[in-house]
Design a protein around this nucleic acid. Structure first.
Lengths: 136, 136
DNA sequence: TCTAGAACCTGGACTTTGTCTAATTTCGCG
DNA sequence: CGCGAAATTAGACAAAGTCCAGGTTCTAGA
């Protein structure tokens, strides 16, 4: 799928999000690239020319998108969280040195032998992270 | 295995770590409980009665233990890292609401279908995190 | 069109986790 | 003992993220 800025209002509305100026810009930053971005990076992309969107709004909006299931959170680095516009089931490969994060399709991966969940809990998700570093 | 404070100097030395007062206390906090602790929690445990160990030392020491392979780092929560005295291969079950983290033995778990690593990279580790929340 | 209320956005203060540094203390050893 | 190296310290600093009070924009209804 390939997103243009014009797709954003519909995408937002389909997730029950009121499409405002700032929300459209933030969604576009993520979905036009289809990359993992940190809040800082989103902030920078949205404000390339003039300062248009405040830090508070960037954080509020990312958390709203998260809560509405439009994007996912990827926790691999101790000092920043990444936001992932790809919400289909997939896992991650993380280069601990460069900080580069790539998707690994969940389709071919099979995990067996998981224990039953503790009583009274429901599965929220399974994250598989393959950490690599430069060989040598 | 069951650790007493007297085991700590040997444990540290076997990992090529000079056993000092503070390092013994920090190791003991982790290994006597065999629980996942954050830096803050370690700090609190070590200083229950009098203030004995500074923040800088707690962080320095945990990073030293990490680098020497005595403990592991667990990244599941966006705003703090947990330190894990269990270094045998295992995975984690994380309750996103309570913040409670438990071990899942790696023995019974089998992961198949992983793609080949990118050229020039070596495997650092595979982290599997099962996220749960209260059912209902 | 005008207006009231709701929703949204903003700058900036604040919090928390973690790092850095320069100075002091302790340790190992001849 | 006395020296140099290693370890520890307090406190300043940095970065990510939250919070709040005030201001702006949007919307629905008359």
């Amino acid at each position: 799928m390939h997103y243009s800025r014009d797709n954003m209002p519909g995408l937002l509305r389909s997730h029950d999000i009121n499409p405002t100026h700032q929300r459209i810009e933030i969604a576009y930053a993520l979905f036009s690239r289809m990359e993992h971005l940190s809040a800082d990076q989103v902030m920078a992309l949205v404000n390339v020319y003039h300062s248009e969107t405040s830090k508070a709004t960037v954080y509020n909006t990312l958390n709203l998108f998260l809560q509405k299931g439009l994007i996912r959170e990827v926790i691999v680095d101790p000092n920043k969280v990444f936001y992932d516009p790809n919400t289909r089931p997939h896992h991650h490969l993380y280069d601990v040195e460069s900080g580069h994060l790539t998707d690994v399709d969940a389709q071919d991966i099979h995990i067996s032998g998981l224990p039953p969940l503790p009583k009274g809990t429901a599965l929220e998700g399974i994250d598989l992270i393959v950490r690599v570093r430069k060989a040598g």
